[in-house]
């Protein structure tokens, strides 16, 4: 018991080592939050471009670019993308690593969000477009006021899940020496030569956040279902 307490003390208390975890958590949350925002924005734009092309045949060039984006991003590991953005694209520029993280994970997430939102748009009955058109609303107005609100509601749970996935994916940020939560735990391990406690602590923190977010998603889904029943 004494030995365990000693280890706890060494791992978290000595030299304020717990700060590696709290600062890391802060970085992880910041990257996740802004990457989610970037991903949602990118994803919605790409989804609308793709759906518009599929439905009307317009936006050929943008659709082509979107398809390349989706293929490249979904066809390569997020870690490789992160390394390329940091060591290749921003090789000669001094840039805040957190920003690099936000960019890399946001651009990555955008591709997955795009496909989620596109499936939501495609799932809306074509009659909704016709109803809009028959009232004199053009494609853009119908899309904005009739289709997207319904599509968004349908895919909200899937989008929330994408946020959870993104939170966990940011754990590879340490590869560009970003001190996120995972890296924080790893730093403690490398100074104390004690792996169990810091890594388990890191895992627990992720777990608590994910379980918390998941229960929020569950509550959201139940609420959406309720409004469907009226």
């Amino acid at each position: 018991m004494d030995e365990f307490l000693q280890k706890l003390n060494d791992t978290f208390i000595v030299d304020d080592r717990w700060k590696y975890l709290t600062n890391g958590l802060k970085t992880t949350l910041i990257i996740t939050l802004f990457a989610v925002m970037l991903g949602m924005a990118l994803g919605f734009i790409v989804a609308v471009i793709r759906a518009t092309h599929d439905k009307t045949g317009r936006l050929k060039v943008l659709n082509f670019i979107s398809k390349i984006y989706l293929t490249v991003i979904r066809g390569t590991p997020v870690m490789v993308q992160l390394l390329i953005i940091y060591y290749v694209i921003f090789a000669s520029v001094r840039i805040d690593k957190t920003l690099v993280g936000i960019l890399a994970f946001g651009i990555n997430s955008g591709a997955y969000v795009a496909e989620i939102v596109r499936s939501g748009i495609m799932s809306i009955d074509g009659g909704q477009f016709e109803a809009g058109a028959s009232l004199g609303m053009n494609y853009n107005k119908t899309m904005t006021f009739i289709i997207l609100p319904q599509a968004f509601k349908n895919v909200l749970p899937a989008l929330a899940n994408e946020c959870i996935v993104l939170l966990k994916e940011t754990s590879v940020a340490g590869y560009i020496a970003l001190e996120d939560l995972t890296k924080g735990g790893d730093i403690i391990r490398s100074v104390t030569y004690e792996a169990f406690l810091p890594l388990i602590a890191v895992a627990l923190i992720y777990l608590v956040i994910v379980v918390g977010l998941s229960s929020l998603v569950g509550r959201l889904e139940r609420r959406l279902k309720k409004s469907d029943r009226g």
Binding site: D125, Q128, A131, Q150
Partner: peptide, 8 residues
């Protein structure tokens, strides 16, 4: 329309 197509 036959199937109404109200905005749900």
């Amino acid at each position: 329309f036959q199937h109404f197509h109200l905005f749900p």
